[in-house]
Design a protein around this nucleic acid. Structure first.
Lengths: 198, 198
DNA sequence: TAATTATGTTACTATATGGTAACAACATAT
DNA sequence: ATATGTTGTTACCATATAGTAACATAATTA
């Protein structure tokens, strides 16, 4: 048995359910094809009730983003603090990033990042991602300096890395044939060694 | 001076203008935020006029897809017919694919692929892409056999390759600092050699 | 020139849906 | 017990917009 939840914890929990359900639906049917009525129905409540937990429809995207970017930045904090080569940092990052990103809320964020109708929110969203990309670029740059990473365009590399990692969100499902570990291994091999035969 | 266009050529041309404009707007503002009235206004016509060129709004996505997939499949025909190693085929493919994909109509297709509301159209769209992916996988498989490509999971590799290439559509703009050739070079280096320092 | 077809327009309908106001019931704290 | 804040409801509005019908006109063909 779980101890009784406080009022705030309950609220938090309900918000999380709303976000998960909405995220899943946004991914499967699209943001505009999923109405607030649909989302409310999934919680067995009515639309106005949602407004106790979210400011408006777009706020769902914002909240998904906050949660996901929070996780990614924490991961970067941890990885960058470790006493390992930059190449190893990248590998470690890939390993954990995959785990973070294959979750409905994160998927939803990746798919809708920077697409808010509210210009300010959209700008903030893009900035959020750029910041994460910048931090990874920083690791790459250090790697080029310490020799663990081949001399290359760190900007392009960072982008390509994120494109392939984020691409996972649209095809990887945990119930498929490929496990997360296999996947991570394959990606890391590709990133480090490339595909060349000899 | 250009010779006079036939009726059908004119029609074709107008359709192309509609598709380009719509594609650009769908990318920038989103499919649902761009109304048919908006698109019509760009051509200085009214909404009903569009219906002489397209069946309905979704048909714009379908037509963008047909054009783009046509180009990609032709490219694959050419590349696969050449008498070069499979690794070289992949390199050649990347080189040309980048040129195809950095165009508004292709961008629009990439962004909206498989997202039609009409289930049949969506299924056909996914199939279209899967077929292209399959052909690239076939090149990879041959490459593993002939030794030009390292032993790896061809399915995952094909997907990752397309994810990073298609990712270009959301950040690469020809007016930026990176030229298409530099970009292709960097991607090919990454794919073949990876990033490892030594 | 007459007839037909392609291309365009104005005006409209049907429908969906984000958001809100007003009200109800419940839990909690004093 | 009573007051207060929280969480929920029903009913509604405003607005957007895909698609169509009916009509007008230009262009092409017979």
């Amino acid at each position: 048995m779980q101890r009784n939840l406080t009022k705030d914890e309950k609220r938090e929990q309900k918000l999380h359910v709303i976000l998960s359900n909405a995220a899943k639906e946004f991914i499967e049917r699209g943001y505009y094809k999923t109405s607030l009525d649909d989302i409310a129905r999934m919680q067995n409540v009515t639309k106005p009730t949602l407004y106790y937990y979210i400011k408006n429809k777009e706020d769902i995207l914002v909240k998904c983003e906050q949660i996901t970017c929070g996780k990614i930045n924490s991961l970067l904090d941890i990885v960058m603090a470790r006493d390992i080569s930059s190449l190893d940092m990248i590998q470690e990052f890939i390993n954990e990033y995959i785990k973070i990103i294959t979750d409905d809320v994160a998927r939803c964020h990746v798919r809708h990042r920077g697409q808010m109708e509210n210009k300010e929110l959209a700008a903030k969203s893009i900035k959020n991602h750029k910041n994460i990309e910048f931090r990874v670029r920083e690791i790459i740059r250090r790697g080029i300096n310490d020799g663990s990473i081949r001399d290359c365009n760190s900007t392009i590399l960072a982008i390509l890395l994120f494109d392939s990692l984020n691409g996972l969100t649209s095809w990887y499902h945990s119930d498929g044939q490929v496990t997360l570990d296999e996947l991570a291994e394959e990606i890391i091999a590709l990133v480090t060694k490339g595909v060349s035969g000899r």
